[in-house]
C-alpha cells in the first residue's frame, strides 16, 4: 500500500493544514469565544438566584475537598517515601493541556472531533483526550500544525482497555482499582459503549464504574469511562459483556484536555 509521508507520521497534509489554519480555525475559535462570552457574561445575568445557591453548595464542597486533599497529599507523600524505599519505579506524572473543541462530529460517517491544539503545541499521535471533567473522550489520530483530530470512543474504530470498579467500593478502598475484571470497551456509533471480553466468572453489576485499565499502552490507568447499564452473557463466546453509559457527553463537548 502506498502511503503519503505525512500519513505515515499521522500528520495532516500541507493542504489540509493550510485550509484548517486559514479557513476554519480563526472563525471557529472566534465563535467559541463568542459562545463562551455569551454564556458567562450575558446568559448568566438571568441566572443570579440559581447561581447564588449553587455557589453556596460549591463553597461547602470545596471545603470538604480541601480537607480530603490534605489527607490524600499526606498519603501520597507517604506512598512516595515507601516506593522509594522499595526501589519501585516512579509513576508517570503527565500534564493536561487544555483545548477547545473546534468541530464536533463534522462528518456523519465518523465520530471525531477537532481540537484546537496541534503540532505547534507538541501534540503527538495517540495522546488521550479527556473532557472538561476528566472523563475519557478518545485519542489523537491526526495532527496538523494548530489542530488535531480526536477519534471519539463512540466510533466503531475506537477501543480502550477497561477495568470494572464495583459500585460499592469507595475511593478509600485501595485495592478496588486493581481488583475488577478487565475487558475492552468499544464504540458502536450509539450513545453507549460495549464492554466486551470479560471473563465468564467476573463480578460486574449495573452501576459499576468503568475506568481505563492501563493495558495496551495508550491510555493511562484509572481514567473514568462510564458506568455499567446492563450485563449479559455471550453464549457463543462464553464471555460476559456489558453496556456502558459513557461519562462524557459526546454531543456537547466544548472544551477538553489532551494528556501529554
Amino acid at each position: 500500500m502506498v502511503r503519503h509521508h505525512s500519513q505515515a507520521r499521522g500528520s495532516s497534509d500541507a493542504l489540509t493544514n493550510a485550509s484548517r489554519k486559514v479557513l476554519f480555525s480563526p472563525v471557529l475559535h472566534t465563535s467559541h469565544s463568542v459562545d463562551s462570552w455569551w454564556q458567562v457574561d450575558v446568559a448568566s445575568i438571568f441566572e443570579g438566584p440559581r447561581l447564588a445557591v449553587e455557589n453556596e453548595a460549591l463553597r461547602s464542597q470545596v471545603a470538604n475537598l480541601m480537607d480530603q486533599n490534605r489527607t490524600l497529599a499526606d498519603q501520597a507523600d507517604e506512598n512516595s517515601r515507601l516506593r522509594s524505599l522499595l526501589n519501585f519505579k516512579s509513576r508517570d506524572t503527565r500534564q493536561l493541556m487544555p483545548a477547545e473543541v473546534l468541530a464536533l462530529k463534522p462528518f456523519s460517517e465518523r465520530d471525531s472531533a477537532i481540537f484546537s491544539r496541534g503540532g505547534e503545541d507538541e501534540v503527538t499521535l495517540k495522546e488521550p483526550a479527556l473532557d472538561e471533567y476528566g472523563n475519557l473522550v478518545g485519542q489523537v489520530t491526526a495532527v496538523s500544525s494548530n489542530t488535531c483530530d480526536v477519534l471519539l470512543l463512540t466510533d466503531t474504530l475506537s477501543s480502550a482497555g477497561a477495568r470494572v470498579i464495583p459500585a460499592n467500593s469507595g475511593p478509600k478502598d485501595p485495592d478496588a482499582a486493581s481488583a475488577g475484571a478487565v475487558g475492552i470497551c468499544v464504540g458502536d456509533h450509539s450513545d453507549n459503549l460495549q464492554f466486551n471480553d470479560l471473563p465468564p466468572n467476573s463480578e460486574i453489576e449495573v452501576g459499576d464504574l468503568v475506568v481505563t485499565s492501563g493495558l495496551g499502552g495508550i491510555y493511562p490507568k484509572n481514567i473514568p469511562i462510564g458506568r455499567v447499564t446492563s450485563v449479559f452473557f455471550d453464549q457463543t463466546r462464553f464471555l460476559k459483556s456489558a453496556t456502558v453509559a459513557p461519562a462524557a457527553n459526546f454531543d456537547h463537548l466544548q472544551e477538553g484536555f489532551l494528556l501529554k
Binding site: 479557513l23 476554519f24 472563525v27 471557529l28 465563535s31 467559541h32 473546534l102 468541530a103 464536533l104 462530529k105 463534522p106 477537532i114 450509539s190 450513545d191 454531543d251 456537547h252
Partner: peptide, 15 residues
Amino acid sequence: SWLQAGLSARIALFH
C-alpha cells in the same frame, strides 16, 4: 462548512 463544524452535532435529534 462552519455551521457543519460548530453546530451540526449540537443540534442532533434522535441521533
